[in-house]
Write a protein that binds this DNA or RNA. Structure first.
Lengths: 266, 266
DNA sequence: CTCGGTCGGATTGTCGGACAATAGGACAAC
DNA sequence: GTTGTCCTATTGTCCGACAATCCGACCGAG
């Protein structure tokens, strides 16, 4: 560290630097010269992660931040946009000051969705991940579900059955079923991962449901079986049925004539 | 809430708004009045997701964007910071213009890590997720690994064995082992999810390894077994050993006297 | 003809300053 | 108490400016 600093100092005095030439250890680190807005953002981010600024706290006004960091207000604002997009701060509707916040699940999910879409991730890849995660989540849900969870799941199931053929909302209801199951599993990490997957799959899933006639009844059946297993805390059954359920999605795609290698475009 | 809203709306059209007052169906949607920088960011983001702007393309200069959107350059810059933080655009070292890019895995992972940390997610929660994902990833890796994958895994394994007791890099090497296995599994989605988990766990894992004397040899053994199974394409064995391996982490924490409910603080 | 130096144009990073709009609070009027 | 009014703090947006730096072109020396 102090090495690096003194070396960098030498860069300002060419005569010194030219004389030494050990081939090892690149002699010069790339001089770190990131823009001020980056550093300001990093400084605030650090304070948030270190809990010195807690969720709900209001940030000092921009002018004050500008004074403290000795930069222009515009620079502070650019830093704030950074943090805002990361979900670390936000302005509640109709509030003046920015407040510290914790990134919402939806935010993380949307970030992952962007990544998946732009990396041309295929349908099978997402499906495979679901095959890994969802059955285990169902199993956990079967172990930990409460009465409230069951009620919510049942409600979602009814909503799906009630949704008319060709209803564009149907997919959202399916997604909600998955999310509720995640909630019942009481594991925030898996919930986060799951949510990204369902969100990514939703658009193409919608096409599939509309194309394959028997899709709706199969989904409905699976939901019923899963709810039953979860109600009875039958862990293995829950896992098995969810496994079937997810596997069915792929079958649906095949029937619908959608190639498994289709990238999940927005 | 809706009271306040209708009041504000009523200000714009007093006569009409005042007359009707059904309590249901909020009568007015909240007028969307998001700042310009949000809309600019959204507009560019849309073009990127729609592939009209492809990764590698250079964005028009800020002044030009400002002209096109009819906003000031400062406003454009705030929008750019938004997209930059989302990983949708970036400035390659020493490039002038911004170029469109696809969010790197590390970026998504760090986003998820922030979320996990700030939501006080506990060690067990992350561990549980690993228990779900990692064994299946190992299984996939056993099916799909190439010679190159094996070589890389072996190298990482050797590096770990060679790392001196108390080496702070040891954890990084463990993490690399996991990442390489993910790469061998040929599923970008799981890789993304995995990476977030190992990153989140790394700091506390480091403490654990330094505290528990037998941790190093157990990890080393597990890696050896896993590599062997993957080499022989023995799917079930790979899954089993990885399962053991991850389970061992929790045991290590218990031995080290770290409570499973410890939040994974940075 | 290749190599290093120089120059100008294009763009970004940062700054100073300005102003309208609005949230929040205090306070008076009904 | 509710409503209207005024004040202040703070944000959203703009204008204009300038240094730093990258790039490419041009040029002179070996």
């Amino acid at each position: 560290m102090s090495q690096a600093r003194s070396r960098r100092a030498a860069a300002l005095v060419p005569a010194v630097a030219v004389r030494q030439n050990e081939p090892e250890a690149p002699l010069f680190d790339p001089v770190d010269r990131d823009p001020a807005y980056t550093r300001v953002a990093a400084a605030i981010e650090a304070k948030i992660l270190a809990r010195e600024l807690r969720a709900g706290d209001a940030l000092p006004p921009e002018t004050e931040l500008a004074q403290q960091f000795r930069v222009h207000r515009s620079t502070v604002r650019e830093a704030l946009r950074r943090l805002e997009s990361a979900g670390l701060i936000k302005r509640p509707r109709g509030a003046k000051r920015m407040v510290v916040s914790r990134p919402a699940a939806a935010q993380v999910a949307s970030g992952m969705r962007h990544a998946l879409v732009l990396h041309d991730v295929t349908f099978v890849a997402v499906w495979e991940a679901m095959m890994v995660i969802e059955p285990e989540v169902a199993a956990l849900a079967a172990m930990r579900r409460t009465q409230a969870d069951l009620a919510a799941l049942a409600a979602a199931h009814e909503a799906f059955k009630a949704s008319p053929q060709g209803d564009p909302h149907a997919v959202e209801i399916v997604a909600r079923f998955f999310e509720l199951l995640g909630a019942a599993a009481r594991n925030q990490v898996l919930v986060l991962a799951k949510q990204s997957l369902t969100r990514a799959l939703a658009p193409s899933l919608a096409r599939m449901i509309d194309t394959v006639p028997q899709a709706r009844s199969r989904i409905s059946d699976a939901q019923r079986k899963i709810i039953a297993s979860v109600r009875e805390k039958n862990v293995d059954e829950a896992r098995r049925w969810m496994s079937k359920h997810v596997r069915d999605f792929k079958r649906g795609y095949e029937v619908a004539g959608i190639s498994p290698d289709t990238p999940i475009s927005a």
